[in-house]
Deep mutational scan, measured.
Amino acid sequence: FSITQFVRNLGLEHLMDIFEREQITLRVLVEMGHKELKEIGINAYGHREKLIKGVERLI
């Protein structure tokens, strides 16, 4: 299971460039909250919320 699959499953594949540029893996994403996601350029609250909720389902 990769970050690419995870992001695609959430319908947020347009954010993949950010994850690749910042070298974010699923392991790193698990540790990130709204503040960190915003810092790397994910400005939409809804997108950040989707990512965080998606990660919570993985754990």
Rank of each mutant, 00 (worst) to 15 (best):
F1G: 09
F1M: 15
F1R: 08
S2A: 09
S2H: 10
S2I: 08
I3G: 01
I3T: 05
T4G: 13
Q5M: 11
F6L: 09
V7M: 11
R8I: 14
N9Q: 11
N9R: 12
L10P: 00
L10G: 02
G11I: 04
G11W: 01
L12W: 01
L12I: 05
E13I: 10
H14A: 12
L15C: 05
M16P: 01
M16E: 07
M16Q: 09
D17N: 11
D17I: 13
D17L: 10
D17G: 12
I18G: 01
I18H: 05
F19Y: 01
F19S: 02
F19I: 06
E20D: 10
E20A: 11
E20G: 06
R21P: 04
R21G: 06
R21T: 06
E22W: 09
E22Y: 14
Q23I: 05
Q23E: 10
Q23P: 04
I24F: 04
T25H: 05
T25K: 05
T25S: 11
L26S: 03
L26G: 02
L26V: 06
V28T: 13
V28P: 02
L29W: 04
L29T: 02
V30C: 12
V30R: 13
E31H: 13
E31M: 13
E31N: 14
E31F: 10
M32C: 02
G33S: 07
H34C: 05
H34W: 04
E36H: 05
L37F: 07
L37Q: 01
L37V: 01
K38W: 07
K38E: 13
E39W: 07
E39K: 11
I40R: 04
I40P: 00
I40Q: 01
I40T: 02
G41T: 03
G41W: 05
G41M: 04
G41K: 05
G41L: 03
I42E: 02
I42F: 04
I42T: 01
N43C: 14
A44F: 11
A44W: 12
G46H: 13
G46M: 13
G46S: 14
H47C: 13
R48I: 08
R48A: 06
E49L: 12
E49H: 08
E49A: 11
E49V: 14
E49C: 11
E49K: 11
K50V: 09
K50Y: 04
L51N: 01
I52W: 03
K53G: 05
G54N: 06
G54E: 08
G54I: 04
V55K: 05
V55I: 15
E56T: 09
E56V: 10
E56Q: 14
E56P: 03
E56K: 14
R57C: 13
R57G: 08
R57H: 11
L58A: 06
L58Q: 05
I59T: 12
I59L: 11
